[in-house]
């Protein structure tokens, strides 16, 4: 028992060092910009960069679109599968897990060839078309997480009973979907949203290959050209991730304690 506890603490110590040292290192490095003393100059330089603001804003916007359209796609599908096509669940689940198997770079490579100027759907011809394609690519990337989150939330409410109850009260199709189903799986929607946000904000491959001015490619550009700003950006990115995950935890805690209204 004593040796167990010793080994446990040893494992945690090793893990903690592995995780914390790079963060300390990064933070320390980000303060080194002014020679001979620590300062927040690197952060100042980052925040005053117009590129930083515009790419950050662009990625935020893309994340927002991804979350909205992703949920509009995922929630009705998960609902319909649970209600009417339970036999199809393994197939749908398999499809939603495919983005974990097919590397992102392969998917975007396919887009570039399939939706180029000479294709049946020349999305890459215009800026708005390319932005659309970027949102679709982010939806694909976040599909495994979104679907899982929503489906889990749906398992906790009895969708069939909820639907019948709404119908018996004379509710119509959009009412059922937006007034009954969405609010009840809100916790799942929110957890899916936060993880999607974290993914989209740092994403590099899709945006770089689609040539969009997103935050990920901007980070890479800064990394290739500057010395101390990248560390400051890494700390900022870590803080963003931490924020999304913290909100996610908050939501999932709320989900566990809140009584299910069915």
């Amino acid at each position: 028992m004593k040796s167990t506890r010793f080994l446990a603490w040893l494992a945690i110590a090793v893990g903690a060092i592995y995780f914390i040292v790079p963060l300390i290192g990064t933070f320390e490095f980000s303060l080194r910009m002014r020679r001979g003393e620590y300062s927040f100059d690197a952060y100042h330089s980052v925040f005053s960069d117009i590129q930083f603001r515009s790419t950050f804003g662009f990625s935020m916007l893309m994340a927002l679109f991804t979350i909205i359209f992703g949920m509009l796609l995922v929630v009705p599908t998960a609902y319909w599968v649970r209600l009417r096509l339970p036999k199809l669940r393994p197939v749908i689940e398999f499809i939603t897990l495919l983005p974990l198997v097919i590397p992102a770079i392969v998917i975007v490579f396919g887009y570039l060839r399939l939706y180029n100027s000479s294709s049946f759907l020349p999305l890459t011809n215009s800026t708005s078309g390319t932005n659309m394609l970027l949102v679709f690519s982010y939806m694909t990337l976040s599909l495994p997480y979104m679907y899982r989150a929503v489906d889990t939330a749906m398992r906790m409410i009895d969708v069939a009973t909820l639907t019948e109850a709404a119908e018996s009260l004379g509710a119509k199709w959009p009412t059922i979907m937006f007034r009954c189903i969405f609010p009840n799986v809100m916790s799942g929607v929110l957890s899916g949203a936060f993880i999607t946000f974290a993914i989209v904000m740092g994403e590099f491959t899709m945006a770089a290959l689609l040539n969009r001015p997103a935050f990920g490619p901007y980070l890479q550009l800064v990394g290739a050209n500057k010395a101390y700003e990248p560390s400051a950006l890494a700390i900022i990115a870590f803080a963003i991730t931490w924020l999304s995950m913290g909100l996610l935890q908050l939501v999932s805690r709320f989900q566990k304690t809140a009584p299910v209204k069915a």
Partner: peptide, 20 residues
């Protein structure tokens, strides 16, 4: 772990350059 598993990509590279 929830945070770190999502902390990948470009910033992760920066962190390790600043460390190692």
């Amino acid at each position: 772990s929830g945070v770190a598993s999502n902390f990948a990509g470009v910033p992760l590279a920066f962190a390790f350059i600043a460390t190692l």
